[in-house]
Design a protein around this nucleic acid. Structure first.
Lengths: 332, 332
DNA sequence: CTGAAAGCGCTAACAA
DNA sequence: TTGTTAGCGCTTTCAG
């Protein structure tokens, strides 16, 4: 900047004014400065600026996701990016891999980079460790799961409602022998999905104790094996609800192996690519990661802009998409 | 930092030493400083540090991808993240959407944040606009596509070789009436894939002029329509090669609509989730985004660490994965 | 409309 | 082993 000022024959502050589009510079001076900066290939150093700038804004935020390679996370990331780009805010993204220790380490890493805000999918048992920062006014929005031990904004899917929708849809097709296949039980959303499903089953007058609940299925293969066992048991269910993508894939494989794809009904939580190309198409409760990301961005920006209202949880509705597998009737 | 120093009753530089794990501090002093910093909930400001630090390292890099919501990009992102996390380097990711203007704007945005390096999928006609920075020693690695107008490291898939593999595989199954369905022709990888495919067809003694080449298929539906038209034409091909995921999906839909999935052979470039669950399973030329990401990270780190060797292009081999659709024989 | 001086939080260089 | 001083590139404040 010094060099540009020297070349343009002006004071350093004038260069700063021009580079930041501040008013109070004559058009002529402005052009001279612009010329000099181009000639020197000069580029403002944001980091140095934020050191002194009011509010210390770095125009960057941190985003903690289960994994940047997970399509659901990718969509959220993209929606956030789009909403924040308009304000010139860049996004640091990182993957948690369901590891509470990583969550803490990554939050610390982002704090050290002085991000203007944090959007995160909590995985640690409690988020109380960020209370100091949050009360020091670090904007923070939790997504997908609500935080524990701290009052902060959250944007979540209506997991229980969506799962209840799945149950009532299967029951409406005439099924009474249902089964629930679920994810790790230490994940809040998984528990919510089970609760919503089971409660709806009870509400329909079916004995909830008669519904097999197989949980802790952390990957495709464990889900596949659980489904195989269930389907070859003495009194197999005629309809299955799977609480998550990988579980759904596992169930689909089991059904295919048994040649039961067109006989046993299936509804999965979470939509996925090519679901409509399967045979039959897979009925799902679709989440809306794009809306989650957009809403999270809006809340974060509001907080960054000084909104000090009470913390709120925003719920994004899920949606039943019928494609065939969930509409298979029970056998006679 | 001043406050911590005051509370611990030491000089500011001693605090700096402790926070950066530098040697030359007695264990006792160290503990006192650590105590004080915890009490004040102090956290080193990386940005301020890099202002003075030798080499001005910010411990962050920029990553420009087609879109962070695209699974292929997500895998690359993840591999990079994993390789760089060990060095405490954080990743800024951004989406280009095949927009050359965005490429330039985002590169500028990252330069303003003084990233230590850049990994990017080039889309602009030429990358000569970054020559000034690159020659000023900004580490830069191009992925997926080679840069134009600048000599810099690149990590790419062997697009032509992979496509040739697809051609020879189909020919080996007895097909002689092949067709090529491709992406936008302004994308380098798409042109390479066509070249590899067509050249191999010629090498096998088939008149390349007899092979329909349908290009500019930028999304699923345009690919679907192109395939429908092709397959319902007078002398339809018995085997199709699609140059990219979305094109493959479009072709799959067309085949399904015509009930020809088990009659017309298909090989697609790029692997995708559930490809093996389709009916028949879809044979693909799989790329290895994880290896691309890892290699790119290694090259970038080497450059950051001062490697000034000549720019090189690293080629990651693709792989033929047979699942059924590519092994369908031609009709009698 | 313009510029000089101070200082953001930190690290390099040097001194004690 | 520890501390002091200068200064990174910028923005703020305040004076012309």
């Amino acid at each position: 900047m010094r060099h540009v000022a020297a070349l343009a024959g002006v004071g350093i502050k004038t260069v700063s004014r021009v580079m930041n589009d501040e008013p109070g510079v004559s058009e002529e001076t402005r052009q001279r400065v612009l010329g000099a900066s181009q000639q020197l290939n000069y580029q403002l150093d944001m980091a140095a600026g934020s050191l002194r700038r009011a509010g210390r804004r770095t125009l960057s935020i941190g985003l903690l996701l289960p994994s940047v390679s997970n399509p659901f996370s990718g969509e959220i990331h993209r929606a956030l990016e789009d909403s924040l780009a308009a304000r010139g805010i860049a996004v640091f993204a990182a993957s948690l891999d369901d590891d509470p220790e990583r969550e803490k380490a990554l939050v610390a890493a982002f704090l050290g980079r002085r991000v203007d805000g944090l959007v995160l999918t909590p995985i640690a048992k409690s988020q109380s460790y960020v209370i100091p920062e949050h009360s020091r006014d670090l904007p923070m929005v939790f997504i997908d799961r609500e935080p524990v031990g701290i009052e902060a904004d959250a944007v979540v899917t209506d997991n229980a409602v969506g799962s209840a929708m799945a149950a009532s849809h299967l029951i409406a097709q005439g099924h009474s022998k249902l089964a629930y296949l679920g994810d790790r039980t230490d994940i809040q959303t998984a528990r919510e999905r089970r609760r919503g499903f089971i409660e709806e089953v009870g509400r329909a007058g079916i004995a909830t104790s008669s519904v097999p609940v197989l949980e802790g299925l952390h990957d495709e293969d464990s889900a596949r094996r659980a489904a195989l066992q269930l389907l070859t048991s003495e009194d197999p269910p005629t309809a299955i609800f799977s609480s998550q993508n990988l579980v759904t894939f596992g169930v689909m494989r089991a059904l295919k192996e048994l040649g039961a794809s067109k006989r046993v009904a299936l509804v999965g939580f979470d939509d996925f690519t090519l679901a409509d190309m399967m045979e039959p198409g897979v009925t799902v409760i679709a989440q809306h990661p794009d809306r989650i990301g957009k809403l999270a961005a809006e809340r974060l920006l509001a907080r960054i802009d000084g909104d000090h209202g009470a913390a709120q949880t925003y719920v994004v509705p899920s949606e039943l998409i019928t494609r065939g597998s969930g509409e298979l009737p029970p056998p006679e």
